[in-house]
């Protein structure tokens, strides 16, 4: 397998000239009925409501063809356990890996909670800044997308993301990440993770609209974002976020 990849890579370098010609025709019908101008999407996450069931992770992988192995995630859930000795233990909730469901004696726990993570759809996205060919960009409605027909697989964006939200798709060999389920939200559906969340820990909506669950979430909670010092201006905000979360 490895050798075949090696060979095919070499051959493909040689054949790059012919590939150029393949780019000439690309006709796609214009999307109807959806106007991105009226929207600007964001997500709210209520730490106090997450039960760490992992349904969001499963649904995301199913909806978006994310590889099933536990190294590729568009969204994942972290479990934090802050122990009496002051030590903090974090695991990724994944049913496949035993370590992730480590049992702690309740006596040793000061506090504990789950934190769902996903691409923060930064308003000032470092990944977009560094992409050499402009294959990742911010849409008019505020979502960061990857053009998988133009991504060259240099992985600079993966290095630049402070949140570990990107991975290199093992089959496509291009960068991949959460799109807020762009194909769903543009049809008026909720992102798959929000749809299946049993405890409403995730709230999706328009950041500009106040008459919406996301608007209510923003009025009723003290909010925080991840790594604010990096000035990435995330559009995913958290309520009840603990200082231990990074």
């Amino acid at each position: 397998m490895e050798r075949r990849r090696f060979l095919s890579k070499f051959l493909s370098i040689a054949a790059s000239a012919t590939v150029v010609s393949g780019f000439f025709k690309r006709a796609v019908a214009s999307p109807d009925g959806y106007d991105p101008k009226g929207h600007y999407y964001g997500m709210g996450i209520q730490i106090d409501k997450c039960i760490g069931c992992g349904k969001c992770v499963e649904a995301c992988k199913e909806e978006n063809n994310v590889p099933k192995e536990p190294f590729f995630f568009r969204t994942w859930v972290e479990r934090y356990v802050i122990k009496k000795e002051g030590e903090t233990s974090v695991q990724n909730i994944d049913m496949r890996i035993e370590r992730s469901n480590e049992v702690f004696s309740e006596k040793d726990i000061v506090r504990s909670f789950f934190v769902p993570k996903l691409c923060n759809q930064c308003d000032n996205p470092p990944c977009v800044q560094v992409c050499p060919v402009g294959a990742t960009f911010k849409t008019e409605d505020g979502v960061i997308l990857v053009d998988d027909e133009r991504c060259i697989g240099c992985r600079y964006c993966i290095q630049a993301c402070p949140y570990g939200a990107r991975y290199l798709h093992p089959e496509k060999e291009t960068a991949d990440k959460c799109t807020f389920c762009y194909h769903r939200i543009t049809k008026g559906l909720l992102p798959a993770c929000v749809e299946v969340c049993p405890s409403q820990a995730r709230i999706f909506g328009d950041v500009k609209s106040s008459a919406s669950p996301l608007g209510r979430f923003k009025r009723m909670n003290k909010l925080h974002v991840l790594k604010p010092s990096l000035n990435t201006e995330p559009k995913v905000s958290y309520s009840g976020l603990d200082g231990e979360v990074r």
Binding site: A135, I152, G153
Partner: peptide, 8 residues
């Protein structure tokens, strides 16, 4: 990942 696209 895609050397053939490096011309981009």
């Amino acid at each position: 990942g895609h050397p053939t696209r490096s011309y981009e």
